[in-house]
Nucleic acid binder design. Sequence first.
DNA 1: GTCGTTCCGTCCTATCGCACAACAAATTCT
DNA 2: AGAATTTGTTGTGCGATAGGACGGAACGAC
Lengths: 409, 409
Amino acid sequence: MSPQRRSGLGTNQEAIRRHNLGTLLRHVHGAGQISRAELTTLMGLNRSTIAGLVGELESLGISERATAPEGARQGAGRPSAGVRIAQDGPYVIAVDLGVDRAVVARVGLGGQVLQRAQAPVSSDGEAWQVGAAVAALIRAVVEDVPGSSSLVGIGISVPGLVRRSDGLVRLAPNLEWHDVSFGGIVLAALGLDIPVSIANDADLGALAEHTRGAGVGVDDLIYVSGNVGVGAGVIAGGHRLEGAGGYAGEVGHLRFNPDGRPCHCGNQGCWETEVGAHAIAEAIQCPAAKVAQLDEVLDGFDQASPELRATGTALGQGLASIVNSFNPQLVVLGGYFRSLYRLVSTEVNAGLADRALPAPLESVTLALPGLGADSALLGAAEIALEPLFVDPVAALGTALDDVQARLAG
Amino acid sequence: MSPQRRSGLGTNQEAIRRHNLGTLLRHVHGAGQISRAELTTLMGLNRSTIAGLVGELESLGISERATAPEGARQGAGRPSAGVRIAQDGPYVIAVDLGVDRAVVARVGLGGQVLQRAQAPVSSDGEAWQVGAAVAALIRAVVEDVPGSSSLVGIGISVPGLVRRSDGLVRLAPNLEWHDVSFGGIVLAALGLDIPVSIANDADLGALAEHTRGAGVGVDDLIYVSGNVGVGAGVIAGGHRLEGAGGYAGEVGHLRFNPDGRPCHCGNQGCWETEVGAHAIAEAIQCPAAKVAQLDEVLDGFDQASPELRATGTALGQGLASIVNSFNPQLVVLGGYFRSLYRLVSTEVNAGLADRALPAPLESVTLALPGLGADSALLGAAEIALEPLFVDPVAALGTALDDVQARLAG
DNA sequence: GTCGTTCCGTCCTATCGCACAACAAATTCT
DNA sequence: AGAATTTGTTGTGCGATAGGACGGAACGAC
């Protein structure tokens, strides 16, 4: 997650300071609270340098001094002063657009959800209607913002293909969107002009699980999301795998069974036709109206039917292709796969072990999300916070104060 | 390809110098010759800083001053002095281990093959026999090394799964190797102790094509290699995609046709059973003995049979799964796919267009390797050179002088 | 052919960031 | 209670890049 993927540029001293300040903040953000001594070890810098950086962060109002917690003494010596995210520090708005509902949260550094609101969204709604609904939720969520806090940006998670160059939603099958500039729509509905980042829900799930979920410290992981459609987000070498256009991870349309059912993409037998929500709904005879809440329906089961077990096998076998392709250390099963895996973990594991190559198989683990259903939401917060870790001073400079007043007007 | 994937470390001034010197060298290496003015623009540093870095590189004996080439004047002003790789600069040994032959080359900075040798390798040979053969080739290749040149390391390309933590060859099906420490074997046969880097041939093909082949400037590309087995190397975001163990890109065992032929991996209908060398040999009724030279056999055709065209379709359809998963900007078809694509490009393109999602499809291009059959060889050189770009001073410090004399003794 | 323009290399100085050493402070261990 | 240990603070030094002044080398116009 280091910010630096500079192409071939050189580094000057100004860049050092930016980078070190951003990295320091990233550590504080990741840990919530951390001592200066730990920072010294982690970053490999001198005590005095860390002191200078921490001082700058405090004078920016981002962090504040904290005494070490009671229990955790580890030896002799003067205890190290703690650094923790400030109370009224900068925050972002995170939006998780689902198939049938939108969740909006105000999230501070450290990943804490400070305020939260949600509302149902009709699946046949026009994009501008959804945008208006989201804008209303955003207004609700900034109700009680302290005046000194400033808004850094908005992050939006969308269940669809998002072009990374400009954030255009190319295709969101379940919302029936084609080429929708949803970021612009939300900004227009708010009457604001601040940085908006949009990305695919599975990509953001992977990011959040990597930062503060089941995949902390794991640099190669995949978040497979069952969310009506099936998609994956990939963290490779500690960085998001985006692909040339931003569409990497569309594993739902991996070829699975050439004689299988037709897929909405136009082909036949895509993996999604076997493990997608509609296939599972059919396996458990769930009415079509409740497909969007498939996870809750599945949670109501305590035993798996043979049909459902076959689905589990298909899930495992498809994961094998993913494991062979990406060789992740961890595969996180998100969306309704969370509920499904609880019922048919045996079949999933068997299907995976059956079809994966021995070498990639031995290093991979399946896991459930550490963030529950909030992975994508917190991932949206992460991408909105990202500018702070690249250059804290600049990001705070463009952040917006007094959002509540501006939105009221 | 920037060296910086520092996890969460800070940067000190020493690191700046290292990084800038390495980045400068990387630019010279990539371009062969480049002017200081261009370096100033590319790296965003001051003229005087570039001058200092170039001076250090020259005093290290890595680069030398060059006058600008004749034709290329672009306007008024004093022409900028060129920087070019020194004549007797450091070099590496690159080894490309194929199924039936080994190629060894002495490669200098700039990617120039200075000397080259090859020999057939029996496919049922023990690893130590192959190691001895490779060692003999290495001795041949350092015959005429100038005394002032020093050897930085050895890079080896292997057609199999290589564990990245220690370079162990976990599995090389066509050599029938299991858990072979080939780097150690070669070093023992040479009686030397220098850095050895080993990696999968497709991974190295991707790296070389990215650095100096068909994918220069393309940060998301995939090199699909047909080399008896089928594998892929992935460059994502300008960096190698290695995966947790180093096994990423094993696309030969993607599920393709569940009712298909049995694969040596134990499953049925892997993609490799449709587009692997044995399948193609069958389609063109090529005798089993010539499977290893499939590319030459295919080059003898000038028209494709219906069976071969079906193989082309299968190739394209399988590529669609890869394109959907990785969203590359470029797919380079290496190994015997080079020859195959010349015959059945129509079918490959059609199969890809048929099965890939529109969004990833629109940004992808198929291409032949810019380095011909040398992709993996030059990729092996690249990984061996890598330490020079991370820290030129340190890498030169551990480099070996007078290799010829040491190997003779 | 000469002069002006333009761009580049070289030298010197300034600025900035981190490392280092010395000292003071706050705990733990004996 | 005192020694030992670790950390925060402060002042100094080193090193890397930036910036400006100067001279050199080529191009273009008159």
